[in-house]
Design a protein around this nucleic acid. Structure first.
Lengths: 215, 215, 215, 215
DNA sequence: CATGAATGAGACTTCATTCAT
DNA sequence: TATGAATGAAGTCTCATTCAT
């Protein structure tokens, strides 16, 4: 999604028109995320989005052909922001269990630090199978690694994935309703590690490791 | 409104009109459950319900003033069907862990035996905070019992509740997508017991106890 | 409309069923009048009437076949209450001008004394040509008498009627909005007598005659 | 929104879109006026308006969010058409009585010349307090002038206003039902001048002055 | 590209009215 | 007669979507 990755070339490759286009699109997605965060249900109308983004009704249609496409873009944006966060932390880790713990914890921490993001994600994940799959994708590798490393024992990968994704998002939802509790990130991670079959003492320890420095 | 109650026939206090009313209402709720089971999302409109139930548009409004009210009725119906099942199984148990395991397993089994019910429940639970609360209500007592009996260890009851409810419904959703897996009920229950802090061997054993005989 | 006129015979002629019927009907009309007085527009629904009157939906239809019929009954009731008042005052008068003045003044006074009645009448008269005609009927005779007696001079009886009816009801509406003013009844009557061509001094005097004792 | 205004053609600042918008709106209002003229009561629905105007259902809602808003627009249009007429006649007059007489007469004459306009106005004025107030606004200044000039004597300005507005519109309604009467405009004006306290001879004379030339 | 007018499907809701009990 | 369930017409309103400018 070309996050201004390389400032030295971007200005040449993209015409101003393209830049504006990208900016408008980003603005629309950000506005949509904000609206979800603020409690607009899955029924976010393009009309309201246009209003909130300060663009005209028709402009939205220059970027998303249908409402579905817009929802997809929002889901993608949320997932990317998540992966950005997680990847930057778990870059150096090889233990599946540790990677999963760090992933869950960074997810929970990000939601605590940016409740708007967490709130949006929790809402969107309810209606958007695509987002659920995307999140599952991030988890799957760690899950398999942990299994291969002899740490996790689960009857079915799909079941384990569902439990991790659903458990984590439900935990975040609880967090956002109930106002934080100390070390919630570790508490959630520990429960999930336990569920995945890690022995209790190791689950406890792994869930409480110091977070790696951002990679 | 049964003013001149006829003591000779208690069952006939309700006029035929009332009986018809009850029947129509039940028919509407059943139709709604079926529609949810068939994949209609939260956007089930009263218009579509009327069509599907074969009644006129206005009739629905004699029973549910708003979509919310209808959703609530559906959630209640689903929850009641569930509680019937669970209560009939766990009547004689005193161990919180065992009760919880039986509850989760009977939930999963019912969903396997009646995929329509499971499918409807999984969908409704996504949109209906009321139903989530209702399900949480069934779990809470067992959770506390298990904690007091020294079996469960969790950082926060709310977090534990969220994990159990979300984990179970996610597991059921997986089940319904993937069609059948052996002993899934026990697998799910075991994961959750582990997450709640039950030692692995006991979790495994508790999740695999023979289901009590009904009633 | 059988206002319990003759207590000595009513009980024998009418069965209890009839009495109840009459009572229910009267109750419905009174409730409707009250609702109009309270600001319900012309759109008074039979549903709301039934609710307000504490009867069932269907019962209303035992008395009024359609909404129109109900509106008519309300108009009639209001007009009758008016005529009752006016006739009781102007019974002994022969001067058309005096009769008209007394009529207008008793109308205004009744509206002041019973704002609910006035309010209902003002509202209904707007939508109900029937009621306008009925009120015109009460005025016409006095108007002709005044003309024949050489007091009134007007270009067209219809025009004069319209002016008297519209002017009086508008005056009452003003009264009800603005909170009474002293001798409003006389002020209104004087204006109308003037409009009808009575010389100013006589108009003033006639509008201020002491009200006759009730006949 | 006309960012690149083209100074060479001031009239073209508004895009064609805007012109179309204005045209559609005008078309809707005109249609509504016609419907009122044809006898549609206060129950003019936006649905019927759309049908009659030959536009889609939704289009109407781009212009009037509610029925109220539409009524207001109609009332405003009617009142504006009226004020155009009156102002063009009474421009040079200083006597309050004369101005009021000319106003009433031009109102009546316009209604005679354009019965559709008169019919619409009479109907709308019944249901729309806003229009009543607007008409009162036109009258108030003349009324005060006449009072200050010693011509009018009335107990209450509000009462006088109500009488003038109600009397005039009722007179127009009569006219439209009965089809034509000679010099009705003067007859109505005379009655109202009398009601306002102008001496009979002056009322008669003032009501029969030749109408001023326009402009 | 941006704009916003127009469209039509469809949801929600209220009611008058009918009819069986 | 009283009741109230059922009905369907009609109205209000919101939106996704298209299209001409």
């Amino acid at each position: 999604m070309a996050r201004r990755a390389d400032p030295s070339k971007a200005g040449e490759q993209l015409t101003r028109g393209h830049k504006k286009k990208a900016r408008t699109r980003q603005q629309l997605v950000e506005t949509a995320v904000r609206l979800f965060a603020e409690g607009v249900g899955q029924e976010l109308s393009l009309t309201r989005l246009a209003e909130a983004a300060g663009t005209s009704h028709g402009t939205v249609y220059n970027y998303f052909r249908t409402r579905e496409e817009m929802m997809e873009a929002v889901g993608l944006a949320l997932a990317e922001q998540f992966s950005h966060e997680v990847i930057s932390f778990s870059a150096g880790l090889v233990s599946g269990a540790e990677r999963l713990a760090v992933g869950v914890r960074s997810f929970v921490r990000k939601a605590q630090a940016e409740p708007a993001w967490g709130s949006a994600l929790v809402r969107v994940v309810r209606y958007d199978e695509g987002l659920r799959s995307a999140l599952a994708g991030y988890v799957r590798a760690d899950l398999r690694a942990g299994a291969e490393q002899g740490d996790f024992r689960y009857a079915s990968e799909e079941l384990a994935l569902a439990m991790v994704v659903a458990g984590t998002t439900a935990a975040v939802a609880t967090l956002l309703e109930e106002y934080a509790v100390e070390h919630h990130d570790s508490a959630v991670a520990e429960m999930l590690l336990l569920a995945l079959g890690l022995p209790p003492d190791r689950a406890r320890a792994t869930a409480r490791l110091p977070m790696p420095t951002r990679g």
